[in-house]
């Protein structure tokens, strides 16, 4: 007779499924990038202990359904080389994932491949995963290379959108206006022409990098520093789904990591202890205690880059069904 602690099982990244006796194993792939040699290992788990199928999760992980609860130890053994190779923080080696609350940190394909990406999303996602996992608190963080936001960071608790500050060398400009056209047609129309040279409306510019990408003479280049737009507290769900709103613009890596880590302390302090499964979305906690209190905790010890614009207090929209 099965005698299971479902709470422990869930924290070990197994699902309590609708099929009695069967679980599913969730494999986290920080930044959504893995080497192909891991696929046969995932295949082996699915074929040996699962039902031979693999679900691609929306957070860029793999979910292997059809596993018998009795086989979890054996599956954990097979997961170990995957956990090791992806350098996932783990408390007890050989025992599978230490937590599941903080979800896989996902990322668009980023500057490894995409011409539009303003930074290496995979690297930053892995760095963030190292900082925040394992943790039982329900946090969703995603990284996207540019304002196109292919990974949909605006549906996350923390969304990091890459920016570059365009640098203009007027002596290399031939007034072909490729940048002006690209900015107008693909971005926010922040460029204009004055005396045959380009003027950038810095207040309007979203740092997408289209001017740099389209410049044929290297008159536009990227800033040495990498900048980010930090959008916060987007969510899906029953009560009030909403898109994340801008909190910081032209911020940097250190500030983002610090703010996310500080938010864990904030959640620990204010989470509804009666919440089902100990799970309450951060956004609802902020709705309850107020943005100012969240900000007080979030910004503790945070140092801003001189270019950073703080957009608080943040107000969100989205339909309210409650």
């Amino acid at each position: 007779m099965l005698d299971l602690n479902t709470k422990k099982i869930k924290k070990n990244a197994y699902r309590i499924t609708k099929v009695r006796g069967e679980t599913a194993s969730r494999i986290r792939i920080p930044g959504g990038l893995l080497t192909a040699d891991l696929l046969p290992k995932i295949q082996e788990i699915a074929e040996t202990y699962g039902n031979g199928r693999i679900h691609l999760t929306t957070r860029q992980g793999f979910e292997i359904p059809g596993i018998r609860y009795e086989d979890m130890d054996a599956v954990n053994t097979l997961l170990q080389p995957i956990i090791d190779q992806l350098e996932i923080n783990q408390v007890i080696p050989g025992k599978g994932y230490t937590a599941s609350g903080t979800r896989n940190v996902s990322a668009c394909i980023g500057s490894n491949t995409c011409p539009f990406a303003n930074y290496n999303t995979t690297d930053f996602a892995k760095k963030m995963e190292k900082e925040i996992f394992p943790n039982d608190l329900h946090f969703k963080v995603a990284f996207t290379g540019c304002a196109n936001d292919c990974i949909k960071t605006r549906m996350h608790d923390f969304g990091i959108i890459g920016m570059t500050e365009p640098q203009y060398d007027k002596d290399r400009c031939v007034n072909c206006q490729a940048c002006v056209k690209a900015c107008k047609q693909k971005s926010v129309d922040a460029l204009s022409v004055e005396n045959y040279k380009i003027v950038r409306d810095a207040a309007k510019c979203v740092g997408c990098g289209e001017c740099v990408i389209n410049c044929p003479t290297r008159a536009w280049t990227r800033s040495t520093k990498k900048y980010y737009r930090l959008v916060i507290m987007g969510r899906t769900g029953k009560r009030n789904p909403r898109l994340a709103e801008d909190y910081l613009v032209w911020t940097d890596e250190a500030a983002i990591i610090k703010i996310v880590k500080n938010t864990y302390k904030f959640v620990k302090e204010y989470i509804d202890t009666t919440a089902p499964g100990g799970k309450e979305h951060i956004g609802y906690i902020i709705d309850r205690v107020g943005f100012k209190e969240f900000e007080k905790w979030a910004l503790d010890g945070v140092e801003f880059d001189e270019k950073t614009i703080v957009k608080g207090p943040v107000y969100w929209s989205g339909p309210h069904y409650d």
């Binding site: 011409p115 303003n118 990408i213 990227r222």
Partner: peptide, 14 residues
Amino acid sequence: FVGGGTFADTDCIR
């Protein structure tokens, strides 16, 4: 020109 290329983290030789 390190970082001076068209795409992120690419160089330009000029």
